Amino acid sequence: MEKDLQAKRKHHYVWANYLLRWSTNSRDIFCVTSKGNIDFTSVRGLVMEKDFYQLTSLEQKHIDAILMFSSGSPAKLQEMHQSYLRDFLKVQKLESAYKNAKKQSDEAEQAILASKCNLVENLHTAHENAAKNIIENLAQGKMEILKNDQDMVLFSMYLGHQMARTKNFKVRCITGVKECNPELGKIMEHSWWFFSYMFGMNMGLSFYSNRHNENHTLLKNNTNSNFITSDQPAINVHSCVKDDEFQAPDNMDLYYPISPKYSYIITESHRFESGLIEVDESVVTEFNKKIATNANNHIFALRKQDADTYKSFVGGALRKIK
């Protein structure tokens, strides 16, 4: 089968290449499973759900809801949202025209399926590839790469999407909306593949636009403990966040583990000075607990003992809400 016709059905919402920084053999990592066990397993089968980003048919009510949420964004972002939406709707129109045509073919059906499965997945792959060299530099303590504005744009967009593209973020957002407006929650759930990408765009632009007002810090960990990560690796660690509520926080301190020895944090609170900062074990422990608490089902670690230390915290935020 031609590559363009191959539908990517296994959609990862955390980059496998990123998780490999917690591997000692370039394949396997220690993972706390949804049952609370600790496995040593390949990154390729982790944080993945079949058809997670597959396009669904949008009715006018879905389009209206998307435009309603978009309307709160700056004008330039609204234009981008609408441009992406038009492109996605072209696939829907082509599928509708095909179904109404008399002539059918396996190749046409496969091409339509591939488009529906691959479009959003390919966008996320592009963001990952664009940030790859930046993350490699940060994992070596080289923060100066972000002095280049273009690299800062790419990294900001990557962070925004890594926060918004996960299953955990989906569950929290949709549950929160359903509590206030059940019908809107259903609409959002049906078209989440677009909402999540739109929210990721917005957050990425916000991180970049506010870079001179917030502190950007690379945390260096020279302790005997390691940073861990999870299936929700980008989290808000600001003190205003309440783990047992679905309320939108007023502020954000974005925390993102880069490797067992480095993490990146953007602070509205200015808790850390900008630049490269060495942290002690209490800070490592604090952020590891928050990563585990805000995980959906899984945490990942370099050593079995790291996974064992924090496995009791996994999913604590969602359990409190449920």
Rank of each mutant, 00 (worst) to 15 (best):
P233M: 07
S34F: 04
I258R: 00
K61R: 10
A101Y: 01
S23I: 07
G275W: 00
K186E: 15
T175R: 13
I63A: 06
M68H: 15
E245V: 05
N181C: 12
A16L: 01
T229L: 03
T229E: 06
P74D: 10
I145G: 00
L94S: 11
L77Q: 15
G204V: 05
S34W: 06
N221S: 04
K8D: 03
P182E: 05
M157R: 11
Y84D: 14
E245T: 11
N17V: 10
C173W: 08
P260W: 03
L46M: 12
V91F: 10
H161R: 00
V314E: 05
A101W: 00
I228W: 03
H124G: 05
S71H: 06
R303G: 01
N133C: 04
K186V: 06
G275I: 05
R172S: 13
L67G: 02
M1Q: 03
R211D: 02
S206N: 11
A75Q: 14
G160R: 01
S71M: 02
W22F: 10
K10E: 12
D244Y: 07
G200P: 07
L205K: 14
L19G: 07
Q140D: 13
L219K: 00
V32E: 01
V279K: 05
S225N: 10
L318H: 09
Q104T: 07
Y256A: 04
H161Y: 07
K102G: 15
L5P: 01
F195K: 06
H190F: 04
R172Y: 03
T223L: 08
M198H: 09
V14S: 05
N129T: 07
V283P: 04
K178M: 11
F227E: 02
N222P: 08
H127C: 11
L119W: 01
Y84L: 15
T175Q: 12
E273N: 15
A130G: 09
M198N: 13
F69C: 10
T217F: 00
K61I: 10
N224L: 14
L318S: 13
N168I: 03
D87V: 04
A111S: 13
G72H: 13
F272H: 11
